[in-house]
Simulated scan of single mutants.
Amino acid sequence: MRSQTEWSILAVEADTGEVLIESDPDLLLPTASVGKVFLLHHLAELLDEDESLGRLLLRKDSVEPVADSGLWQHLDVPALTLNDCARLVGAVSDNLATNVLLDHVGLAPVQAVASRLAPGGSMLNDSVRDVRTPEDPPTLSLGCAADWVAYFRTPHPTVLSWLAPATDLSMVSSAFGLDPLAHTGPVPTDLANRLQVWSKTGTDDGVRAEVGLLDVAGRRAAYAVICRFEGEVVPVLGQMRAYGTLLLDVLQGG
């Protein structure tokens, strides 16, 4: 029987690999939307081969409607470029854009990317579903901190560009004092420090996860904080913020 709260946590200095924070980094846990990064990485590699693919128009009615996170479901525009769909996934974890992109490229190639990049077993299991039946994968994605820190030590630059405007700063990043709607460039924290973060979060019932890269005055840390829990979410968010505060303090030389 599992405990009520399980954590997989790791933060390392990106350049040196020095471990800054660590707790059960190889534990695989549900990560909700975090696994969408594998889709973004696959798209980035396709664009490396043919950048014109980014201008391809994809229609929102090519898949069934899906609710929850995202903006496209609320917009009139019937089609967006592949690049803009990826931007929506990076910025607001857009579920409809995710499914449109998966419908276009296929789930299997994305899972092949995950198998190549994540030896610890992190995986995008499925497209986004409003309702999961017993025949469906039980969770959108699985992940462990070790896999995600390894990825964000050397992330694809195009993926970082899509993640830069990510608006969900409710977890680890809540400690960084950033404007959720305007933080795509370095933000002065004082005369000596400039701060920038690229992150992807995942939210589901009993799941909170954030993975990413934090830069403070040129010193970078790849980090991942993943939690599966029972009960109230507020204490979990408070602990995630505490890990963010600790990470920021370490990078600032504390």
Rank of each mutant, 00 (worst) to 15 (best):
F176Q: 01
Y151S: 05
P188G: 08
P188K: 04
G185V: 11
H183T: 10
V149C: 03
M171N: 11
L195P: 00
A166I: 02
V159S: 04
P155S: 09
P165H: 03
N193R: 13
F176V: 08
S174D: 08
T189H: 07
V187K: 01
T158E: 04
G177S: 13
S173N: 05
S170Y: 06
P188F: 06
L163W: 03
T184S: 05
H156T: 07
L163K: 03
L181N: 13
P157A: 15
A164V: 05
T158P: 00
V172A: 15
F176T: 06
S161F: 11
G177D: 03
P186R: 12
D190L: 08
R153P: 00
P157K: 08
L191P: 01
H183R: 10
A166G: 11
W148C: 09
L195I: 10
L181C: 15
G185E: 11
G185Y: 03
V172H: 07
L169Q: 06
P157R: 13
T184P: 00
S161C: 09
A166S: 10
A175I: 14
L163Q: 02
L163N: 02
M171H: 14
P180V: 11
A166W: 00
A192M: 07
S174F: 09
S170D: 11
T189V: 15
P188R: 09
M171G: 10
F176P: 00
W148E: 04
T167K: 11
S161L: 10
S161H: 10
V187S: 06
S170I: 07
D179H: 09
D190W: 08
P155F: 06
P180F: 14
H183E: 02
S161V: 13
S173W: 04
A175C: 09
T184H: 01
M171P: 00
L191K: 08
A164P: 01
L160G: 04
T184N: 00
T154R: 11
